[in-house]
Design a binder for these strands. Structure first.
Length: 564
RNA sequence: GCACUCAUAGCUCAGCUGGAUAGAGCAUCGCCCUUCUAAGGCGAGGGUCUUAGGUUCGAAUCCUAAUGGGUGUACCA
């Protein structure tokens, strides 16, 4: 149910009848007295028509079809057109949504192959809180695109190549004990290796030698490297599993995957005569900037940019992506600007949309970047475990559930809290990492939504009639507002999709749940004195609320439970 | 130096792309459980939307400048 487009069409028709051509943008009204929606497009026309905007508005209003969808329109203020929706029409559409598995959310007419590049951890280190954003923003965008009917390719561009791996595998070989055991703490392993590298000249030489050896395909070193990557990937997978993120090993296309294509990529660019040599390095220059993108170092080595270019080719030519989203830290904006510019110069990406879904940096409480200072890095696993254990504590204070139930609920609540805290912030802004806030269960948090869902579940469980026979028939203003909000779900998802901003969805779900909570307090359902028709209608409203909350959270990658 | 980005309540953030009296959560202070889960609801206080100009019927939102954070800026990823 796309409310806005339904209304836009009616307004557009009225404008046509008045011989006015204008883009129709419908806004939600800020206050109940201004109706459900408003059209503000008349005022700018006053000058063009040399007429009082109120007069124009009156003319348009007289042409607006009143009936099934719109119950009333009025001109207000300098020329606002306030639109009131028909209560029965809302009820009817809510009923249709209630009976539909997809809640009346249509699948796109134009399915695209959307490739989403996200998470991208470095294999040399354990995932820390800084990896959270890319991972869950990317995952929720992937979930959403899929839900809207697109073909989604998830790509985990893990960092498994580079000079540091020489050091790591040399150290792995050196300690030559049970490697899996020693790699349990990747962070420590890296530190130990680094220490050895800095202190032991022979070891450092060996490390450097091993870098070359992996790159030239030395069997022994490659075996060590593969072993290392495998263990490191397992670490990531543990985190993904805990986080409820759907990335699997099939989604991994690591940097090393593109190694064999790097030469070709350079040749390809040379053929297009884009490459200049500057200070011995192969560069691509841009008209509006002094800073080139370096494609190949003077020593012949390849760079991040080279891999990315090779990756675009692969994604466009082999995977046939229509749209590629890079969910990567905003600090790399310049890199992506250059990358996309090159892509368009060489037509890698004719008709392919390339977008950098940038997100802000995580700051500490004093407003400085949350640096991975030595020994001070917050591991992602630790954050998640902490949250789960905090959830467990508060459950224990309230309820006597079995251990297995507590485990399950604590996980859903704990993980939900962390994900929601991150997803509910506009990704473009920097954000302050605060343990208390991250692990908070008060106010605008995942728990609030989960709790709303639980309240509904509890009612539906207690009701002994047939819920499927219940129909929505709005009986007061609060119910109307709630139902209207429920029907805005599709508009909301569209906005989230267009802007790639999950926080729009969290905001919507929070608003929705707030309305439901009020409804819950004011409009009792199972009480004896409630007449059957109203009871059934309220049950249906509650049921649709639960379904919408659940579906919304599912897109965000957050689970619900039946009780808390 | 240049470029990008941000600045909204004590704190953390929204503000649907220029609309009517700027909204939430936390924190503070009241009220509401013999009534569907109080991890909840209702209410109060709290604002010169960093500053100064400009654009127009109308600006937190757009343009310019200043100030202050953050980031990027040639062989790391």
């Amino acid at each position: 149910m796309n409310l806005k487009s339904n209304i836009s069409i009616i307004i557009k028709t009225a404008l046509d009848k008045c011989d006015i051509s204008a883009d129709v943008v419908i806004n939600e009204s800020t206050k109940a007295e201004f109706g459900d929606y408003q059209y503000n497009g008349i005022m700018p026309l006053a000058k063009v028509f040399k007429q009082n905007p109120r007069e124009i508005a009156k003319r348009v209003v007289s042409q607006i079809e009143i009936g099934t969808i719109i119950s009333k329109v009025e001109v207000a203020g300098p020329g606002f057109i306030n639109i009131f929706l028909n209560r029965d029409w809302l009820s009817e559409n809510a009923n249709i949504a209630l009976k539909d598995d997809r809640l009346s959310i249509s699948k796109t007419d134009n399915p695209l192959k959307i490739l989403i590049d996200y998470s991208g951890p470095n294999m040399a280190k354990e995932m820390h809180v800084g990896h959270l954003r890319s991972t869950i923003i990317g995952d929720s965008l992937a979930n959403l695109s899929k839900f809207l009917g697109h073909n989604v390719i998830r790509q985990n561009h893990v960092g498994d190549w580079g000079t540091q791996f020489g050091m790591l595998i040399a150290y792995l070989e050196d300690i030559s004990q049970d490697s899996a055991d020693n790699l349990k703490n990747l962070e420590q392993f890296y530190k130990d290796a680094k220490k050895r590298f800095d202190e032991d000249e022979d070891f450092a030489d060996k490390a450097r030698e091993y870098v070359v050896k992996i790159q030239s395909g030395d069997e022994h070193c490659l075996k060590l490297w593969k072993q290392f990557i495998d263990i490191s990937l397992h670490h990531c997978e543990d985190v993904y599993k805990k986080l409820g993120v759907s990335l699997t090993r099939d989604d991994v296309k690591a940097e090393s995957f593109y190694n064999s294509e790097l030469d070709n990529t350079i040749k390809f660019l040379e053929d297009k005569s884009l490459i200049d040599i500057s200070d011995g390095a192969k560069c691509i220059f841009f008209e509006d900037s002094d800073t080139p993108m370096i494609i190949q170092k003077k020593d012949g080595g390849y760079l991040y940019a080279t891999t990315d270019l090779a990756a675009i080719r692969y994604r466009v030519e082999t995977l046939k992506a229509d749209k590629i989203l890079y969910v990567v830290d905003a600090r790399q904006s310049f890199h992506f600007k250059q990358l996309f510019e090159i892509a368009s110069k060489v037509n890698f990406s004719d008709n392919v949309v390339l977008e950098h879904i940038a997100f802000g940096t995580m700051m500490d409480k004093s407003g400085r970047p949350f640096k991975t200072r030595d020994g001070g890095t917050v591991k992602l696993v630790n954050l998640l475990d902490e949250s789960i254990s905090k959830a467990k504590d508060s459950i224990n204070k309230r309820e006597n559930y079995s251990d297995t139930d507590i485990e399950k609920i604590a996980e859903v609540v704990g993980i939900g809290a962390v994900k929601y805290a991150d997803l509910s912030i506009n990704r473009e802004s920097n954000y302050i990492f605060d343990w208390d806030k991250m692990l908070s269960f008060d106010g605008n948090t995942a728990l609030y939504l989960q709790y709303g869902y639980v309240r509904i579940s509890s009612i539906l469980k207690k009701y002994d009639g047939d819920i499927n026979s219940c129909n929505i028939s709005i009986s007061d203003d609060l119910e109307q507002k709630l139902v209207l909000t429920l029907l805005k779900f599709e508009d909301t998802l569209d906005r989230v999709y267009i802007q790639s901003k999950p926080h729009i969805l969290t905001l919507y779900l929070y608003d929705l749940t707030t309305l439901f909570m009020r409804f819950y307090e004011q409009n009792p359902i199972l009480r004896d004195d409630i007449v059957e028709d109203i009871q059934k209608s309220r049950l249906a409203i509650a049921s649709l609320s639960a379904k919408t909350i659940k579906q919304g959270l599912e897109i965000l990658g957050i689970e619900v439970v039946d009780r808390l």
